[in-house]
Design a protein around this nucleic acid. Structure first.
Length: 554
RNA sequence: GCGGUUGUAGCUCAGUUGGAUAGAGCAACUGCCUCCUAAGCAGUAGGUCGCGCGUUCGAAUCGCGCCAAUCGCACCA
């Protein structure tokens, strides 16, 4: 049982005993507030604090300090050195120092497993993210989604959730037609034919690269076939090439998926079936030759077309079929990560799911605000090379995968992100990613040297020797780690972990200043080696959740 | 016009069931390498938490109104 749970229980028991002793009276309908234990903002306020007395002032009809006094007198725990009443009625708990050492010893003995919480045995949660069209390169906006999604997947798995990561490939519909026409035009052009480039085609350089690769592998054999045959070939070859490029970039960016779901598999059967079910339920109607979803019945601003006048299903129709499919796969929860520019789309998808009889609340849509790149203080809008939105691979080349991921994960998802390219490239403590990585490298360096000097960690270091404030701070930070993972998972907030890595690195650097390992007597050296061993593990583990490497030397 | 997000130190931002003197990094200024990596550490300074009203013992946090930035409001995806 964790010390927090012990304190919580003791507080509740004390509160209940004040009632049974007749000190305070409460109405039958009242229930005790939840005990909120927090680490106080200042060290002087103890190891844990609760505002329970203030929270219960109302139902006890008494002032918080009086209540706190009664609670204080009833809580007797061997782990607690003293309890103080402070401020408006805070109860501050000061633990016996041995408690933190006992806890730290457990962490130490847990070794590399620290940071992996027990499996929650939940129904698998599906997280769908990136899902960029296979018609061009991933750009930095996709990069932020990729970093956030993969970090959330990692964090939730560490928190003990069962997770399946999925990529939805929009390999059907309009944009594939545009891709086909564009690749076709570039193919012919590169082989010396005169072509009119399609008006709505994709102009970027990467399409030319795709056409080049097709020529490399297939040669000019599609020059002398029918238009139809060539277009079919261009569609499949172009698609294959684009998808391969996407996967290449994602892999380089340390992003992995358990499942790649092709939109094509929904056409036409699943799409038709979804529409038929909606028709049966009477939420589809015909108007001006098109089929409309009556999404206004479910809170949408207006009704939406699902089948166009020309008989083609809209993107929404496929998306309804896709989400229906997801619900039918029986996940406990469905999480989508979308760009902020898609927020207007939520109401209609949820409307369709509700109409189909699913619990739309199970579908959780997280939004990512936009990314703006800055170089020398100036907003960078376009890639010089491609003339288009900045490709993720250019960012990776410029600042590296570690810095790109770390910077993407520094801010909460619903803050717009200003990405400072100059800062991300700096090799100094100004650059937060180096700052954290350096802490890890420093520890590894100490281990290399102590190994040479035959300073031993041993199996059972005496951690009670770690009494310097810098040591205590570091121990406490380490002890917080699993709770931080839990919170980050619950709030889908990877930036909490990013922040945590910066904080623990700062505490380690302070420790490094104050506490030497080489040159102190061996029992103390051993305890300190134990402390930094766990520190290194936690930093590496936390960076791992973010998809950032932890180098052993820099 | 309607909707989402944002507004906290000069800059970039943390700060969730409402709690103690609102935090960090950068930039600025001042110090610290005969000593395990100075890619580091310590200190100083910096605030009407966008504005107003309300709820509360207590509000950066909750409610309402306003202002500003941004993204959206397709038979595009």
């Amino acid at each position: 049982m964790q010390i927090k749970d012990i304190l919580e229980k003791a507080i509740i028991d004390a509160a209940q005993s004040t009632i049974s002793d007749g000190i305070f009276k409460i109405a039958d309908t009242d229930s005790l507030p939840e005990v909120l234990l927090e680490v106080p903002p200042k060290k002087e306020f103890g190891d844990f604090a609760t505002n329970f007395a203030m929270q219960s002032a109302k139902i006890f009809h008494n002032n918080p300090r009086k209540i706190a006094e009664e609670l204080k007198n009833r809580i007797k725990l061997e782990q607690v050195e003293k309890i103080e009443i402070a401020g408006a009625g805070f109860l501050n708990f000061y633990l016996k120092p041995t408690i933190i050492y006992d806890h730290f010893r457990e962490i130490f003995n847990n070794g590399d497993n620290y940071g992996q919480l027990p499996n929650k045995n939940n129904k698998t949660i599906q997280i769908e993210y990136v899902s960029a069209n296979p018609t061009g390169l991933l750009h930095v906006g996709h990069g932020r989604g990729a970093a956030a999604g993969s970090a959330i997947v990692n964090i939730m798995r560490a928190a003990g959730y069962n997770i399946e990561a999925e990529y939805y490939i929009n390999d059907a519909g309009n944009q594939m037609d545009k891709l086909t026409k564009s690749v076709n035009a570039r193919y012919l052009e590169l082989l010396g034919q005169k072509v009119d480039f399609p008006e709505d085609g994709y102009l970027a350089q990467d399409i030319i690269d795709t056409a080049k690769r097709i020529i490399e592998s297939e040669g000019d054999k599609y020059l002398n076939v029918s238009e139809e045959e060539r277009m079919n070939a261009m569609r499949e070859l172009g698609y294959k090439d684009k998808l391969a490029e996407l996967k290449k970039d994602l892999k380089a960016f340390r992003v992995e998926f358990d499942n790649w779901f092709s939109e094509r598999t929904l056409h036409p059967a699943a799409v038709n079936e979804a529409i038929d079910v909606l028709k049966e339920k009477g939420i589809i109607y015909e108007h001006e030759g098109a089929l409309w979803l009556k999404s206004t019945d479910y809170g949408d601003d207006k009704d939406r077309v699902v089948v166009r006048e020309n008989g083609e299903p809209t993107y929404l129709a496929a998306d309804i079929a896709y989400h229906k499919n997801k619900f039918e796969r029986g996940f406990g929860e469905l999480i989508n990560i979308w760009g902020a520019d898609h927020h207007g789309y939520v109401a209609r998808v949820k409307a369709a799911m509700s109409a189909l009889g699913f619990d739309a609340d199970k579908l959780k849509i997280l939004f990512l605000q936009m990314v703006a790149l800055y170089r020398s203080g100036e907003l960078v809008k376009m890639s010089k090379r491609s003339g288009n939105a900045i490709p993720l691979r250019e960012l990776m080349e410029e600042v590296g995968t570690d810095a790109a991921r770390f910077f993407f994960l520094m801010r909460s998802m619903d803050s717009q992100l200003d990405f400072d390219l100059d800062l991300a490239k700096k090799k100094s403590s100004d650059n937060p990613v180096y700052y954290v990585q350096y802490a890890h490298a420093r520890i590894c360096s100490i281990f290399r040297q102590t190994a040479e000097m035959n300073i031993k960690l041993g199996d059972n270091p005496n951690f009670n020797l770690l009494i310097h404030p810098s040591e205590i701070d570091l121990i406490n930070k380490i002890a917080d780690y699993e709770e931080e993972i839990e919170k980050a998972a619950k709030e889908y907030a990877p930036q909490r972990i990013t922040r945590y890595t910066q904080e623990i690195a700062a505490l380690f650097h302070a420790f490094y200043r104050d506490c030497r390992i080489i040159g102190v007597e061996s029992e103390l050296a051993s305890a300190r080696l134990g402390l930094i061993k766990v520190t290194a593990h936690v930093i590496k583990h936390a960076l791992g959740l973010l998809g950032v490497s932890a180098p052993e030397s820099m």
